[in-house]
Design a protein around this nucleic acid. Structure first.
Length: 294
DNA sequence: ATGGCTCGTTCAACGAGA
């Protein structure tokens, strides 16, 4: 089972590349971010011709998340409990026909989608950028992640064996090795600030990086400007953060740097994990049994 | 010191990205 996450920076501008890659790499499930369109604008036909089912959450030209999967998707959700919105409060509609809002009547953005595939609980997440340390978007980013962490803890408390993956564009470079863009300055810039890194670290013990053990180095994003890609001045901000039960089944992983090359690439590249779903807890428990030598 | 690319909006610049 091959599962991937990719911030595609507009699915309509990139549909040929995305579907070509899915087919060539024989990807089972892809979580996308920044599709930048509504479901009625999504280029469904090309995905479906390649054998993929689709789940799409997009409200306008900003943000937007989706899944393409060869296998059936169930339990589709586009929010988690306590997810904050961004912007000005709106008047709630009595019949619930208006935009989805948080507890303060602030509209929710299209930044999360959860699906279940073959018993795996997968989330496609587009964490808010933050814009700058003194911007309201930065406080929103931290609140959004705090709510995600609270839900993650609850999901795993209810089911410690849950095979859960929080995959997407986290918009945080968790270590200095993950930041290679010289325009980002510690203490001044988003993505490397202490509160962001502490928030990322707060997921430890719940989920861990499923990719880094197999791909210890490498960026997932390079800015379009300033020759960042040829100079390899990128950042590692796209992650598949997974529960222990999920990681027990991961047999390989990689970052597909080649997708930053060629005509009209996204500024992010796909991040991929390969799972062996036949690996079970029982087998691992058996491995822990004392050996009896005859 | 500033902008640098790319996208969607929609035809002219601008918001947003990171």
């Amino acid at each position: 089972m091959r599962i991937a996450t990719w911030n595609v920076n507009s699915v309509r501008a990139r549909v040929d590349r995305i579907v070509d890659w899915l087919v060539r790499e024989d990807v089972d499930v892809l979580g996308m971010q920044e599709i930048k369109c509504r479901p009625d604008q999504f280029p469904r036909a090309q995905f479906e011709a390649a054998g993929y089912h689709l789940e799409i959450h997009g409200l306008n030209q900003w943000n937007g998340v989706a899944f393409a999967s060869k296998h059936e998707m169930t339990d589709v959700t586009t929010t988690f409990e306590g997810m904050p919105g961004f912007g000005e409060p709106v008047q709630p509609t009595l019949d619930g026909s208006g935009p989805a809002v948080d507890a303060n009547n602030i509209p929710l953005e299209a930044r999360a989608m959860g699906v279940t595939v073959d018993g795996l609980r997968l989330w496609s997440l587009y964490v808010p950028n933050g814009r700058s340390l003194d911007h309201a978007h930065y406080a929103y980013k931290l609140e959004w992640l705090k709510a995600l962490r609270t839900n993650t803890e609850r999901w795993l408390t209810e089911n410690p064996q849950l095979r859960l993956a929080l995959m997407g564009d986290w918009n945080i470079a968790p270590t200095d090795a993950d930041m290679g863009d010289p325009s980002f300055t510690p203490g001044v810039s988003t993505h490397v600030s202490v509160p962001e890194r502490e928030m990322f670290a707060s997921f430890e013990g719940l989920v861990g990086d499923a990719v880094r053990p197999f791909a210890p180095e490498g960026f997932t994003f390079w800015d379009y400007k300033q020759l960042r890609f040829p100079r390899d001045e990128g950042m590692r901000i796209d992650f598949i953060m997974a529960s222990e039960a999920f990681r027990d089944q991961v047999v390989d992983a990689h970052i597909d740097r080649n997708e930053r090359k060629g005509d009209a690439p996204s500024d992010h590249v796909p991040v991929v994990v390969d799972l062996d779903l036949t690996l079970s807890d029982e087998e691992y428990e058996d491995d822990d049994m004392p050996m009896i030598f005859g």
